[in-house]
Design a protein around this nucleic acid. Sequence first.
DNA 1: TTCAATTTCATTATTTTTAGTGATTTTCAG
DNA 2: CTGAAAATCACTAAAAATAATGAAATTGAA
Lengths: 199, 199
Amino acid sequence: MSRTRHIIIVEPSFIIVEGLSAVFSKFGLKYTISKAATLEELSSLLIIKACDAIVLNPLLLQNNMKGVQALKTRFEDIKWIGLVYAYHDPSVLAMFDTTITISDTPESIDSKTDKILLSEYSADKDLPQDILSEREVDVLKLLASGLANKEIADKLNISINTVITHRKNISQKTGIKSVSGLTIYAVVQKLITLENISG
Amino acid sequence: MSRTRHIIIVEPSFIIVEGLSAVFSKFGLKYTISKAATLEELSSLLIIKACDAIVLNPLLLQNNMKGVQALKTRFEDIKWIGLVYAYHDPSVLAMFDTTITISDTPESIDSKTDKILLSEYSADKDLPQDILSEREVDVLKLLASGLANKEIADKLNISINTVITHRKNISQKTGIKSVSGLTIYAVVQKLITLENISG
DNA sequence: TTCAATTTCATTATTTTTAGTGATTTTCAG
DNA sequence: CTGAAAATCACTAAAAATAATGAAATTGAA
């Protein structure tokens, strides 16, 4: 088990900061996050607390390449991750150890971060064996989304009989017969997103 | 004190979704959020739950302008908010009631959202705010736990007709008709925990 | 006490779902 | 190529759920 990594996110957009923060939070104690909106704030943060990596919007480099170079020299162990959501000159991106984009999945962000932090790559790839076939998952998703058999059939362009057959197989494989049970199953298996109400 | 507004965020980027979600969460009970990554998911969500506004990345419109127009017609009271972080053709942006960008502050996002939600009559329809009665909650809990109407009736020592009546009222109050939608509602409202579900 | 909401139950007609049994076509790894 | 799994569709009978109305008894706050 590797230690917790401390990461500083430097990005002016509140949305991006919170979103990226949420991404790292998904991985439990693996990461702790600090936030900064400007390079000045970053400098202040670095004085009071060490960190393993800095996620930085390259836009912030525009007028202060020198200052950043100084920081890089001073904290040579810190990894720099570019956070791109627009075009950036390759020469600018070259200064980063890796880049992540806003379209990256949490897993890909975690994996990229892992890689540059040289931490041991999680070997346990015991991915949950998908009991259900692809088509069965299609049906289950729509079912858990509130559609009736007929609607599912229309959406998937198959006959209602086929939908019923799939549902029979789904129930048999999962051992769950009720719609509510299957809905929860879909949520737990992350087949559908149930993210409501902050709590 | 106005009622809670339900907003659906439709955006493929996990980061953006989480970030924007965090923005709305800042305002406590003012907003509740659902998330969708694609237009398909949006359609499914709209079936099981009403909403006040949809925040949508215009990029998702590229290949499905028609589908969105259909949704707009079908749910004419829903406000559409463009979520822009790149250039978009003005003709595309024209279909939105307002737009927000990732550089907006939480306050500005709240203010923009407020503005369009208050525009025109926001004649309270029978959206989610009606609270369920005690007995209705009893029924909902058992329903979301996988029991059929008959089983619920037995468990509560009432006739199946009464259960059906309760369910009609529940659906009317929540605006949710499908069992899966009600199940998710029950989970979100913390009426049941995931362990309660049986087959 | 009064009135509204809640809880209870019923009937009828329709629609949807489930159960059981088969069967044909596709797909894909060995 | 072959066989197994997957995906497709059909038919029937029974069970369950929904829709539309109506209404009596209970409860609780004004």
